[in-house]
Write a protein that binds this DNA or RNA. Structure first.
Lengths: 165, 165
DNA sequence: CACAACTAAATTGCACACAACTAAATGACT
DNA sequence: AGTCATTTAGTTGTGTGCAATTTAGTTGTG
């Protein structure tokens, strides 16, 4: 046994206004992650029929919109690097939804193109957005407002991380 | 070659107000994930000295506050199941920060207790919250407001996922 | 041309998340 | 006491994220 068998609740040493600060970071970040994971849960249910995960759905959305994209551009759109995209794209290719081939102009680049089957899948995905928006219980204005705040937050955090590194 | 060598931009078939809907789900969820991952990036930098990942930091926060918790309670606090917690706690134990032992009252339960070293680590973590809040560039009121919206969103999404399943 | 600096993907290694399953213990009920 | 549903952790397998490294191709410069 340690000197303190059960340490018990440890109160922040600053009971004043600093106390409000103390777990705020955890609270906001945790709420953020919880919301993100809750979204993922809804997408998992909704995308199950399509056989897609949420990141895979994002890739297909990008391809449905742009037709063909090099891996690098996909990564910029989705904020993902090749370490994440390479295996993900390999799975999409194995599922017959995309095709990958080296660019002729630049042999370093790999062009990702949706297959016929990949394009056809779009029809079955058309009602996904409405179902998701409905699931949030939020109005369109509210969603836009929240999105604006989140984007501002992301910019600030990215800047801070770059400066602290 | 397919009938459409390069499908090109595919516009949503509804150019009207429904068009606003169409990628809103992607936009809000994506903004949410981006913010969450940006937070993670800042935490990664800030927690590097402590040798903790963000989920591990959350576990230590819970233990610093409550002293000792069974795995189940930890899971409830952090919204994580044993599939995630078991290996994570094993790593924390290997790092000497926590101790695990079967409960005497209920042999099914495993009590997680911070070690002396784990408790000592708290001192070095005291300035983490302030650094994180600073990194957001948000005021306290703004954080609270955002958190309230996110928690409401999470509740709605959880309910929807449960009903759709 | 030679060669260094740069770029794009892929690979490797680690750490979550989460579904599905297993094993052990508990509780309820007959 | 015996049996069965429930509870609690742990395990296994899949799929991200991301840092660090590797490989191959490209570009700029002397």
């Amino acid at each position: 046994m340690t000197p303190t068998p059960n340490p018990g609740p440890v109160t922040p040493e600053a009971p004043g206004p600093a106390g409000d600060w103390l777990h705020l970071d955890q609270q906001i970040c945790f709420s953020l992650q919880s919301a993100s994971r809750a979204f993922n849960g809804v997408y998992r249910v909704v995308l199950k029929d399509l056989g897609l995960t949420y990141p895979q759905y994002l890739v297909m959305l990008a391809l449905w919109e742009h037709g063909t994209l090099p891996v690098r551009k996909l990564g910029e759109h989705l904020r993902l690097d090749s370490g994440t995209l390479s295996p993900l794209l390999k799975r999409l290719e194995a599922a017959g939804l995309v095709h990958r081939e080296r660019s002729a102009r630049d042999e370093r680049s790999v062009e990702v193109r949706p297959t016929e089957e990949g394009l056809a899948l779009r029809e079955r995905a058309l009602d996904v957005p409405r179902r998701i928006v409905t699931a949030t219980g939020f109005g369109l204005d509210e969603i836009q407002g929240l999105k604006a705040r989140l984007d501002r937050l992301t910019t600030a955090l990215d800047t801070a991380a770059a400066n602290e590194a």
